[in-house]
Protein backbone atom coordinates (compact mmCIF):
# COMPACT_ATOMS: atom_id res chain seq x y z
CA UNK A 1 0.00 0.00 0.00
CA UNK A 2 1.40 3.32 -1.05
CA UNK A 3 -0.76 5.19 1.47
CA UNK A 4 2.12 7.25 2.80
CA UNK A 5 3.22 8.56 -0.55
CA UNK A 6 -0.33 9.11 -1.77
CA UNK A 7 -0.86 11.36 1.20
CA UNK A 8 1.74 13.75 -0.15
CA UNK A 9 -0.66 14.38 -3.01
CA UNK A 10 -3.04 15.91 -0.46
CA UNK A 11 -0.78 18.86 0.32
CA UNK A 12 -1.59 21.08 -2.65
CA UNK A 13 -5.33 20.33 -2.71
CA UNK A 14 -5.52 20.97 1.04
CA UNK A 15 -3.74 24.29 0.63
CA UNK A 16 -6.10 25.17 -2.19
CA UNK A 17 -9.18 24.32 -0.14
CA UNK A 18 -7.78 26.29 2.81
CA UNK A 19 -6.97 29.43 0.81
CA UNK A 20 -9.89 29.50 -1.63
CA UNK A 21 -12.62 27.86 0.41
CA UNK A 22 -12.13 27.89 4.18
CA UNK A 23 -10.41 31.26 4.59
CA UNK A 24 -12.95 33.13 2.40
CA UNK A 25 -15.76 31.78 4.59
CA UNK A 26 -14.01 33.19 7.63
CA UNK A 27 -13.92 36.51 5.82
CA UNK A 28 -17.67 36.35 5.15
CA UNK A 29 -18.27 35.62 8.82
CA UNK A 30 -16.07 38.53 9.86
CA UNK A 31 -17.72 40.92 7.43
CA UNK A 32 -21.16 39.96 8.67
CA UNK A 33 -20.10 41.40 12.04
CA UNK A 34 -18.77 44.63 10.54
CA UNK A 35 -20.58 47.87 9.80
CA UNK A 36 -21.41 49.28 6.43
CA UNK A 37 -19.61 52.53 5.63
CA UNK A 38 -19.27 54.79 2.63
CA UNK A 39 -15.77 53.88 1.53
CA UNK A 40 -13.96 51.36 -0.59
CA UNK A 41 -14.08 48.65 0.56
CA UNK A 42 -17.42 49.62 2.06
CA UNK A 43 -17.10 48.17 5.54
CA UNK A 44 -15.52 48.92 8.89
CA UNK A 45 -13.61 48.21 11.07
CA UNK A 46 -10.46 47.02 9.35
CA UNK A 47 -7.40 45.79 11.16
CA UNK A 48 -4.77 48.50 11.49
CA UNK A 49 -1.60 46.40 11.44
CA UNK A 50 0.61 49.42 12.11
CA UNK A 51 -0.92 49.58 15.60
CA UNK A 52 0.15 46.00 16.29
CA UNK A 53 -1.76 44.24 19.05
CA UNK A 54 -3.74 47.40 19.82
CA UNK A 55 -4.95 47.49 16.24
CA UNK A 56 -6.24 43.92 16.48
CA UNK A 57 -7.98 44.74 19.75
CA UNK A 58 -9.60 47.84 18.33
CA UNK A 59 -10.70 45.78 15.36
CA UNK A 60 -12.25 43.06 17.53
CA UNK A 61 -14.02 45.68 19.62
CA UNK A 62 -15.48 47.13 16.43
CA UNK A 63 -17.25 43.88 15.51
CA UNK A 64 -20.88 43.53 16.50
CA UNK A 65 -24.08 41.75 15.60
CA UNK A 66 -25.83 44.90 14.47
CA UNK A 67 -26.25 43.67 10.90
CA UNK A 68 -28.03 40.55 12.14
CA UNK A 69 -30.29 42.70 14.26
CA UNK A 70 -31.17 44.61 11.10
CA UNK A 71 -32.03 41.38 9.32
CA UNK A 72 -34.38 40.29 12.06
CA UNK A 73 -36.19 43.62 12.19
CA UNK A 74 -36.76 43.85 8.45
CA UNK A 75 -39.71 41.72 7.36
CA UNK A 76 -38.23 41.49 3.83
CA UNK A 77 -35.39 39.23 4.92
CA UNK A 78 -37.63 36.85 6.80
CA UNK A 79 -39.97 36.62 3.81
CA UNK A 80 -37.07 35.93 1.49
CA UNK A 81 -35.76 33.27 3.87
CA UNK A 82 -39.08 31.51 4.14
CA UNK A 83 -39.84 31.63 0.44
CA UNK A 84 -36.35 30.34 -0.39
CA UNK A 85 -36.91 27.27 1.76
CA UNK A 86 -40.47 26.83 0.55
CA UNK A 87 -39.53 27.04 -3.13
CA UNK A 88 -36.51 24.77 -2.72
CA UNK A 89 -38.60 22.21 -0.81
CA UNK A 90 -41.47 22.31 -3.31
CA UNK A 91 -39.01 22.10 -6.17
CA UNK A 92 -37.32 19.06 -4.60
CA UNK A 93 -40.70 17.35 -4.13
CA UNK A 94 -41.67 18.03 -7.76
CA UNK A 95 -38.28 16.80 -8.94
CA UNK A 96 -38.71 13.53 -7.06
CA UNK A 97 -42.18 13.04 -8.58
CA UNK A 98 -41.00 13.86 -12.10
CA UNK A 99 -37.49 12.42 -11.92
CA UNK A 100 -38.35 9.02 -10.47
CA UNK A 101 -40.50 7.74 -13.37
CA UNK A 102 -37.89 8.98 -15.83
CA UNK A 103 -35.00 7.28 -14.01
CA UNK A 104 -37.05 4.12 -13.55
CA UNK A 105 -38.07 4.08 -17.20
CA UNK A 106 -34.46 4.43 -18.34
CA UNK A 107 -33.31 1.69 -15.98
CA UNK A 108 -35.87 -0.68 -17.49
CA UNK A 109 -34.50 -0.28 -21.02
CA UNK A 110 -31.92 -2.63 -22.50
CA UNK A 111 -28.25 -1.75 -21.97
CA UNK A 112 -27.42 0.03 -25.25
CA UNK A 113 -30.55 2.17 -25.14
CA UNK A 114 -30.03 2.94 -21.46
CA UNK A 115 -26.67 4.64 -22.00
CA UNK A 116 -28.03 6.63 -24.95
CA UNK A 117 -30.95 7.87 -22.82
CA UNK A 118 -28.67 8.83 -19.95
CA UNK A 119 -26.60 10.76 -22.48
CA UNK A 120 -29.78 12.46 -23.69
CA UNK A 121 -30.64 13.52 -20.14
CA UNK A 122 -27.15 14.91 -19.53
CA UNK A 123 -26.77 16.62 -22.89
CA UNK A 124 -28.85 19.74 -22.13
CA UNK A 125 -26.77 20.22 -19.00
CA UNK A 126 -23.73 20.75 -21.20
CA UNK A 127 -25.39 23.71 -22.92
CA UNK A 128 -25.50 27.10 -21.29
CA UNK A 129 -27.74 27.30 -18.27
CA UNK A 130 -28.50 30.98 -18.93
CA UNK A 131 -29.49 30.20 -22.47
CA UNK A 132 -31.88 27.50 -21.39
CA UNK A 133 -33.50 29.86 -18.90
CA UNK A 134 -33.65 32.49 -21.61
CA UNK A 135 -35.43 29.98 -23.85
CA UNK A 136 -38.08 29.50 -21.17
CA UNK A 137 -38.58 33.25 -21.00
CA UNK A 138 -39.16 33.28 -24.74
CA UNK A 139 -41.68 30.49 -24.33
CA UNK A 140 -43.54 31.80 -21.29
CA UNK A 141 -43.71 35.54 -21.89
CA UNK A 142 -47.15 36.96 -22.70
CA UNK A 143 -46.39 37.23 -26.43
CA UNK A 144 -44.29 34.06 -26.36
CA UNK A 145 -44.31 30.66 -27.99
CA UNK A 146 -46.63 29.05 -25.44
CA UNK A 147 -49.38 31.59 -25.85
CA UNK A 148 -48.97 31.57 -29.63
CA UNK A 149 -49.48 27.82 -29.54
CA UNK A 150 -52.45 28.08 -27.15
CA UNK A 151 -53.96 30.78 -29.38
CA UNK A 152 -53.60 28.58 -32.43
CA UNK A 153 -55.53 25.87 -30.61
CA UNK A 154 -58.21 28.37 -29.64
CA UNK A 155 -57.32 28.26 -25.93
CA UNK A 156 -57.07 31.28 -23.65
CA UNK A 157 -53.54 32.62 -23.03
CA UNK A 158 -51.75 32.09 -19.73
CA UNK A 159 -49.48 34.58 -18.06
CA UNK A 160 -47.14 32.78 -15.69
CA UNK A 161 -43.81 34.48 -16.37
CA UNK A 162 -42.65 36.49 -13.35
CA UNK A 163 -44.60 34.31 -10.90
CA UNK A 164 -43.55 31.60 -8.47
CA UNK A 165 -44.96 29.03 -10.87
CA UNK A 166 -42.38 30.10 -13.44
CA UNK A 167 -39.63 29.91 -10.82
CA UNK A 168 -40.65 26.36 -9.91
CA UNK A 169 -40.74 25.40 -13.56
CA UNK A 170 -37.27 26.84 -14.03
CA UNK A 171 -35.92 25.05 -10.95
CA UNK A 172 -37.37 21.71 -12.01
CA UNK A 173 -36.04 22.19 -15.51
CA UNK A 174 -32.54 23.16 -14.47
CA UNK A 175 -32.09 20.50 -11.79
CA UNK A 176 -33.83 17.55 -13.43
CA UNK A 177 -30.60 15.77 -14.51
CA UNK A 178 -29.26 16.07 -10.94
CA UNK A 179 -32.31 14.18 -9.69
CA UNK A 180 -32.51 11.61 -12.48
CA UNK A 181 -28.87 10.54 -12.43
CA UNK A 182 -28.47 9.46 -8.76
CA UNK A 183 -31.86 7.72 -8.94
CA UNK A 184 -30.88 5.97 -12.15
CA UNK A 185 -27.57 4.91 -10.59
CA UNK A 186 -29.30 2.93 -7.81
CA UNK A 187 -32.10 1.61 -9.99
CA UNK A 188 -29.73 0.41 -12.69
CA UNK A 189 -27.63 -1.48 -10.16
CA UNK A 190 -30.60 -3.23 -8.69
CA UNK A 191 -30.49 -6.97 -9.13
CA UNK A 192 -33.47 -8.13 -11.14
CA UNK A 193 -33.58 -11.40 -9.29
CA UNK A 194 -34.81 -9.43 -6.25
CA UNK A 195 -37.98 -8.54 -8.12
CA UNK A 196 -38.29 -12.11 -9.36
CA UNK A 197 -37.82 -13.38 -5.81
CA UNK A 198 -40.54 -11.02 -4.55
CA UNK A 199 -42.91 -12.16 -7.28
CA UNK A 200 -41.98 -15.77 -6.66
CA UNK A 201 -42.99 -15.22 -3.03
CA UNK A 202 -46.38 -13.99 -4.17
CA UNK A 203 -46.04 -10.24 -4.62
CA UNK A 204 -47.81 -8.56 -7.53
CA UNK A 205 -45.57 -6.44 -9.78
CA UNK A 206 -46.89 -3.32 -8.05
CA UNK A 207 -46.24 -4.76 -4.60
CA UNK A 208 -42.79 -5.85 -5.69
CA UNK A 209 -42.08 -2.30 -6.78
CA UNK A 210 -43.51 -0.83 -3.60
CA UNK A 211 -41.87 -3.29 -1.19
CA UNK A 212 -38.53 -3.92 -2.92
CA UNK A 213 -37.56 -1.42 -5.62
CA UNK A 214 -38.71 1.70 -3.84
CA UNK A 215 -36.99 1.02 -0.48
CA UNK A 216 -33.77 0.04 -2.26
CA UNK A 217 -33.77 3.27 -4.27
CA UNK A 218 -34.09 5.52 -1.21
CA UNK A 219 -30.34 6.31 -1.06
CA UNK A 220 -30.51 7.52 -4.66
CA UNK A 221 -33.56 9.62 -3.89
CA UNK A 222 -31.83 11.10 -0.85
CA UNK A 223 -28.71 11.92 -2.87
CA UNK A 224 -30.79 13.53 -5.60
CA UNK A 225 -32.87 15.50 -3.12
CA UNK A 226 -29.80 16.89 -1.33
CA UNK A 227 -28.01 17.58 -4.60
CA UNK A 228 -31.01 19.67 -5.72
CA UNK A 229 -32.31 21.21 -2.50
CA UNK A 230 -29.07 22.80 -1.29
CA UNK A 231 -28.14 24.81 -4.38
CA UNK A 232 -31.78 25.61 -5.13
CA UNK A 233 -32.16 27.29 -1.75
CA UNK A 234 -29.45 29.75 -2.78
CA UNK A 235 -30.42 29.99 -6.44
CA UNK A 236 -30.03 33.41 -8.03
CA UNK A 237 -30.47 33.27 -11.80
CA UNK A 238 -33.84 31.51 -11.97
CA UNK A 239 -35.74 33.75 -9.50
CA UNK A 240 -34.02 36.79 -10.93
CA UNK A 241 -34.94 36.13 -14.55
CA UNK A 242 -38.19 34.18 -14.20
CA UNK A 243 -39.62 35.27 -10.88
CA UNK A 244 -40.34 38.95 -11.44
CA UNK A 245 -39.96 41.53 -8.75
CA UNK A 246 -42.14 39.88 -6.10
CA UNK A 247 -40.28 36.55 -5.91
CA UNK A 248 -37.81 36.90 -3.08
CA UNK A 249 -35.10 34.36 -2.56
CA UNK A 250 -31.96 34.62 -0.45
CA UNK A 251 -29.58 34.23 -3.38
CA UNK A 252 -31.19 37.20 -4.97
CA UNK A 253 -31.11 39.19 -1.72
CA UNK A 254 -27.35 38.60 -1.40
CA UNK A 255 -26.86 39.71 -4.99
CA UNK A 256 -28.95 42.86 -4.53
CA UNK A 257 -27.32 43.81 -1.22
CA UNK A 258 -23.93 43.40 -2.79
CA UNK A 259 -24.31 44.86 -6.27
CA UNK A 260 -27.20 47.33 -5.91
CA UNK A 261 -26.97 48.48 -2.27
CA UNK A 262 -23.20 47.97 -1.87
CA UNK A 263 -24.00 46.75 1.64
CA UNK A 264 -21.28 44.13 2.08
CA UNK A 265 -22.02 43.37 5.74
CA UNK A 266 -25.69 42.72 4.95
CA UNK A 267 -24.82 40.47 2.02
CA UNK A 268 -22.41 38.58 4.31
CA UNK A 269 -24.94 38.24 7.10
CA UNK A 270 -27.55 36.83 4.71
CA UNK A 271 -24.95 34.44 3.31
CA UNK A 272 -24.12 33.26 6.85
CA UNK A 273 -27.79 32.74 7.67
CA UNK A 274 -28.25 30.75 4.46
CA UNK A 275 -25.15 28.71 5.18
CA UNK A 276 -26.27 28.02 8.75
CA UNK A 277 -29.58 26.76 7.39
CA UNK A 278 -27.92 24.53 4.81
CA UNK A 279 -25.17 23.15 7.04
CA UNK A 280 -27.18 20.09 8.11
CA UNK A 281 -28.17 19.08 4.56
CA UNK A 282 -24.59 19.74 3.43
CA UNK A 283 -23.18 17.46 6.14
CA UNK A 284 -25.72 14.78 5.21
CA UNK A 285 -24.66 15.09 1.60
CA UNK A 286 -20.99 14.81 2.51
CA UNK A 287 -21.57 11.73 4.59
CA UNK A 288 -23.40 10.11 1.74
CA UNK A 289 -20.76 11.06 -0.81
CA UNK A 290 -17.93 9.64 1.23
CA UNK A 291 -19.91 6.44 1.62
CA UNK A 292 -20.45 6.17 -2.13
CA UNK A 293 -16.86 6.99 -3.03
CA UNK A 294 -15.08 4.90 -0.42
Amino acid sequence: MSGGRSRLAAILPLLWVAVFFAFPFALVAKLSLSDSVLAMPPYAPRIDWSQGFEGVRAFLAGLDGETYARLVKDRLYLDAYLSSLRLAATGTGLLLLIGYPIAYGIARCRPGVREALVMAVILPFWTSFLIRIYAWIAILKPAGVLNAALGALGLPPVDILNTETAVLLGLVYAYLPFMVLPLYAVLERQDESLIEAAQDLGATPLQAFWRVTLPISIPGAAAGALLCFIPMAGEFVIPDLMGGSETLMLGRVIWTEFFANRDWPAASAVAIVLLATLIVPILLFERQQSKVLK
Partner: peptide, 24 residues
Protein backbone atom coordinates in the same frame (compact mmCIF):
# COMPACT_ATOMS: atom_id res chain seq x y z
CA UNK B 1 -11.06 18.64 5.74
CA UNK B 2 -10.18 17.85 2.14
CA UNK B 3 -13.21 15.65 1.49
CA UNK B 4 -15.42 18.16 3.32
CA UNK B 5 -14.16 21.10 1.27
CA UNK B 6 -14.58 19.18 -1.97
CA UNK B 7 -18.08 17.89 -1.37
CA UNK B 8 -19.31 21.15 0.14
CA UNK B 9 -18.24 23.03 -2.99
CA UNK B 10 -20.37 20.69 -5.08
CA UNK B 11 -23.61 21.85 -3.52
CA UNK B 12 -22.66 25.28 -2.16
CA UNK B 13 -24.94 27.99 -3.59
CA UNK B 14 -22.87 29.91 -6.12
CA UNK B 15 -23.83 33.24 -4.60
CA UNK B 16 -22.06 32.30 -1.38
CA UNK B 17 -18.98 30.99 -3.18
CA UNK B 18 -18.79 34.13 -5.32
CA UNK B 19 -19.18 36.48 -2.37
CA UNK B 20 -16.56 34.71 -0.26
CA UNK B 21 -14.03 34.55 -3.08
CA UNK B 22 -14.53 38.23 -3.78
CA UNK B 23 -13.76 39.03 -0.13
CA UNK B 24 -10.62 36.93 -0.42
Amino acid sequence: ALAGGVYATLVMPEVILGLSLLFL
